[in-house]
């Protein structure tokens, strides 16, 4: 392992070009994907690639930390907040600030050229290698530095973390301004309002899925809006499969009748062509 860190082998070069492409693509996806979730996942991919690079560069501890802390904890925190927050936040890629996109592109390009020019000017030929530094083990070496040379920075970082934790709690904490309603009060309120007194319906009788994004069907085969989460509807993520599944069902029944040789000419029931007259909570209310 140590020898691997000292000099860059051909294998490492291959690995760099393959994974480096992945990392750049991931980064581009992060900034170009429309949905925040996709961005987060792309970023996680880039980070994992970076973790591999850390390992290849002899930073074994950091490589592991990158995966465990960054990809594992921080990115999951991101996803958590995306789920919490981003549900209704439609992030269109249409630019609203005049010239912002051109400015951003120009500046980014210029900045990148400057950086790369600067790096290209430096005469960096060979790695010195970490063989010597990692001789007693990478983690031991880091530990020795952290607790000697960088002990104050380490202590201060600890203080920073605690402050951040407390700060996050303070920021997100919301004081209750009124008493929470009890279950009895809630049910009484429902009765008083006169709508949806019983619990919301589960996916319907003819449901062929138990997925949360597919509405349940009413006895007449129409989908019930009540059976899916309004958040999904707001996102437009509801898969409306009722009509085709009804048609499919009917065809299946007919085929099975035919196969059984019963050949009953009459329709068992006429499916409503318009489809959507008795809908929503009226059905629930009828019950």
């Amino acid at each position: 392992m140590t020898s691997l860190a000292a000099a860059a082998s051909t294998g490492e070069a291959v690995q760099f070009w393959l994974l480096g492409t992945v990392a750049v693509v991931g980064a581009l996806c992060t900034i170009l994907m429309k949905r925040a979730v996709h961005s987060a996942l792309s970023l996680a991919g880039t980070m994992i690639v970076l973790a591999v690079f850390y390992l290849a560069n002899g930073a074994y501890f950091l490589g592991v930390v990158q995966i465990v802390v960054y990809t594992g904890a921080i990115m999951m925190l991101f996803l958590f907040v995306v789920m919490l927050v981003g549900v209704t936040a439609a992030d269109s890629l249409k630019e609203t600030l005049k010239g912002q996109r051109w400015l951003a592109a120009g500046l980014g390009l210029g900045f990148g050229i400057l950086l790369i020019a600067g790096i290209g000017n430096a005469s960096l030929k060979e790695f010195n290698g970490l063989g010597e530094a990692n001789a007693g083990g990478n983690v031991q070496g880091l530990a020795a530095l952290i607790f000697t040379k960088y002990v104050f920075a380490f202590e201060i970082t600890g203080a920073l973390l605690i402050t951040a934790a407390v700060g996050a709690m303070v920021l997100t904490h919301r004081e209750r301004t009124e008493r929470a309603r009890t279950q009895r009060e809630q049910s009484e309120a429902r009765v008083r309002e006169g709508k949806q007194v019983p619990p919301l319906p589960a996916p319907g009788v003819y449901a062929r899925h138990n997925a949360v994004d597919i509405p349940g069907l009413l006895p007449d085969g129409t989908p019930s809006e009540l059976t899916v989460n309004p958040t999904l509807r707001a996102r437009g993520q509801i898969r409306d499969v009722s009509r085709e599944s009804l048609a499919e069902l009917k065809a299946l029944e007919r085929r099975s009748e035919d196969w059984l040789g019963r050949g009953s000419g009459e329709e068992p029931e006429a499916p409503p062509s318009g489809g959507a007259s008795p809908k929503e909570h009226k059905e629930g209310a009828k019950k």
């Binding site: 900034i31 907040v81 609203t96």
Partner: peptide, 21 residues
């Protein structure tokens, strides 16, 4: 690679409007 990733990130900060992104 580091410079490239950094620049891409900077451009993303300028372009995206979703605070999380």
């Amino acid at each position: 690679l580091a410079a490239l990733l950094f620049t891409i990130g900077a451009a993303g900060v300028l372009i995206r409007r979703n605070a999380i992104v």
